[in-house]
Write a protein that binds this DNA or RNA. Structure first.
Lengths: 112, 112
DNA sequence: AATGATATATAGATTATCTATATAAGGAGG
DNA sequence: CCTCCTTATATAGATAATCTATATATCATT
């Protein structure tokens, strides 16, 4: 897929994943790829710097933990500020999507 | 709106506008702003270089014409190659949108 | 022991947007 | 007439977000 389309929505996607509970970076890449049906191929070089930024802004916090396999991983957990940011970005994305559909003429029902 | 969300979809929007007939640059900015409900605020510094790129790639062609008001404007018309590109980019956007909705959980009906 | 998948990190390149600035024509109001 | 605002196009430089490439280390498999 066109990489530039993803631009601006990666933070939203990561925050959304963390809404369901803590995850570690590599797991997020796999999860996004799987849940999107192989459409999203978020690269490591994009994700890890993004996670550091989200942590610096106070949206997530990290901690090291062994996840059963005996190997230590760096988990990220959503903070209350991150949940607020998730809501804000979700609203913005819905606005953007609806505007796109007004131009492209893709909406078939009112609720979508 | 977040400018980065628009990233990657401006060419699609411009090609879509030209599907209805030739337009000039300033007109496209006004049209996009109006039809999107003031969500899209595509700036001149973004649009004009984009139009030059689309022309260089053979997707559109330009010509000067007086549009009734006596003032000459630079019109752009969609070329067959541009229509093909429009279809390609539309498919890509629908894929992207559907993937986003799989993660965000926003789809309420099958057809949307 | 070697290879490949897992896991995190960072520097540098690429690309697409924006801001700021320049130019010029046309209309409105003083 | 002159000034200001809107219309209209153009480009250079700044900013931001992605990618590629590279580095390191652990674990599983052959």
């Amino acid at each position: 897929m066109e990489k530039s389309l993803l631009s601006g929505s990666t933070a939203l996607l990561v925050l959304k994943l963390l809404e369901d509970g803590p995850m570690y970076g590599y797991q997020m890449m796999e999860s996004l790829r799987g849940r999107s049906g192989n459409v999203f191929e978020l690269k490591a070089g994009t994700l890890y710097p993004l996670l550091h930024t989200l942590e610096n802004r106070g949206f997530v916090e990290s901690y090291y933990e062994e996840g059963g396999s005996g190997r230590e991983r760096k988990y990220y957990r959503l903070r209350p500020e991150g949940l607020e940011e998730l809501k804000r970005q979700n609203v913005q994305w819905q606005q953007y999507r609806q505007a796109m559909e007004k131009i492209l003429g893709g909406a078939f029902c009112e609720t979508c």
